[in-house]
Amino acid sequence: MTVPESAPDTEPPQRPPASRRTDASPWNWFLLPAIVLPIMTFIYNNDEPRLLGFPMFYWFQFALILVGVGCTTLVYQKTKRRG
C-alpha cells in the first residue's frame, strides 16, 4: 500500500523494519453506537416523558453524552498500550 511506484527523488533514510502493530481491533466497533444514536432524532424528539422538568429531547441527549463517554472509555481501556 505504501510502497512508492515511481523512483524516489531522494534516497529515503534507512529505517528499521516495520513493526507488526495495528490499530485494527474488534473493540473499535463499540465506537459506533455513540455516533449513530445521536443522529437518530426520531428516538428522542418528544416533550414527554419529562425528567426533573426536562423534556425527553433534552434529558435523552444529556444521557447520550454518558453513552459516548462509556464507549470511548471502553475502547481506550481495551486498546491502550501495554507495558
Binding site: A34, P38, I39, F57, L64, V67, G68
Partner: peptide, 19 residues
Amino acid sequence: AAGFFAVPYTIIVYPLVFL
C-alpha cells in the same frame, strides 16, 4: 430545539475521530 444541535455534534465527534 434546533439550536441544541451543538450537543449531539460534540457527542458524535469523539468516537468519530478516535482512530
